[in-house]
């Protein structure tokens, strides 16, 4: 420390530490997503990476986790990956629509990978943002439609005890003819959307997501409560419809 008799503010440097915004993308890879839809998702993920990593503020803090769900669910990124080094995974579509398993993977990852603040040790991450992309209704392992599995799993993610990590928002995007508005709204914590199934639709939607994230980071650098309010500040792609 300077021993002169003049103030020296330049030498006062907080130790700081990094804080990240975890973003989870839960992607339906059930049988009905085979072909063009799953390819559209992959291209959309590329766009998401490009757009988010291109924002000077978002790229500093966004870490991505991708969970696919068909007959099984898997955290294909094997953790939360900095957006600057995120590479869209190879996606394969098959099987049922086990949204419940996706929520369980999400809960496990939040406990394992989202950093909690410790005074004198480390800064904690912001609450995770969760985006779910699905083209159908949740099922059991036999492909039978049911709400008996995914609803308690979702509740387990949202209704956690004090001190446990939970998401700031869960936002569902439904594509194709088999989605039901009420189901999408039930999955979400707030808003839900219907979208097209084309490459252009997925690209546009994931671009919208990345812009909303950047806007939420911009609003006072505390995305915990800002993502929802900033979804309204970003223009909706033409075939993305907000479900009232």
């Amino acid at each position: 420390m300077s021993q002169s008799n003049l103030p020296n503010w330049a030498e006062v440097q907080p130790a700081g530490g990094e804080r990240h915004l975890p973003v989870y993308l839960l992607i339906d890879t059930s049988d009905s997503m085979k072909g063009a839809p799953i390819e559209a998702v992959r291209q959309g993920l590329e766009q998401f990476q490009t757009e988010t990593a291109g924002d000077e503020y978002a790229r500093s803090i966004v870490h991505v986790g991708v969970i696919t769900f068909g007959s099984e669910a898997k955290l294909v990124t094997e953790g939360l990956v900095p957006i600057t080094s995120f590479q869209p995974p190879i996606l394969e579509a098959a099987g049922a629509t086990r949204l419940d398993l996706a929520f369980q993977e999400l809960q496990a990852s939040m406990d394992a990978h989202v950093v909690k603040p410790i005074k004198g040790a480390q800064k904690g991450d912001w609450k995770p943002c969760v985006f779910i992309f699905t083209d159908g209704l949740p099922t059991d392992s036999n492909g039978t439609l049911t709400n008996e599995l995914w609803k308690p799993a979702r509740d387990g993610v949202l209704n956690r005890v004090k001190g446990e990590t939970k998401p700031s928002e869960v936002i569902a995007f439904g594509c194709g003819p088999n989605v039901v508005n009420e189901n999408l709204k039930d999955i979400s914590t707030g808003v839900a959307f219907r979208m097209g199934s084309s490459v252009a639709s997925f690209v546009a939607v994931l671009r919208y997501v990345s812009m909303s994230l950047a806007a939420s980071v911009a609003s006072g650098a505390n995305p915990d409560n800002t993502l929802l309010s900033n979804l309204d500040k970003v223009s909706l792609p033409p075939d993305l419809i907000r479900i009232p």
């Binding site: 130790a15 530490g17 603040p117 410790i118 004198g120 040790a121 480390q122």
Partner: peptide
Amino acid sequence: LSGDLLYSDKEGA
């Protein structure tokens, strides 16, 4: 400011 001061692992920071 407190976020930058209280969560460092550097002793005495």
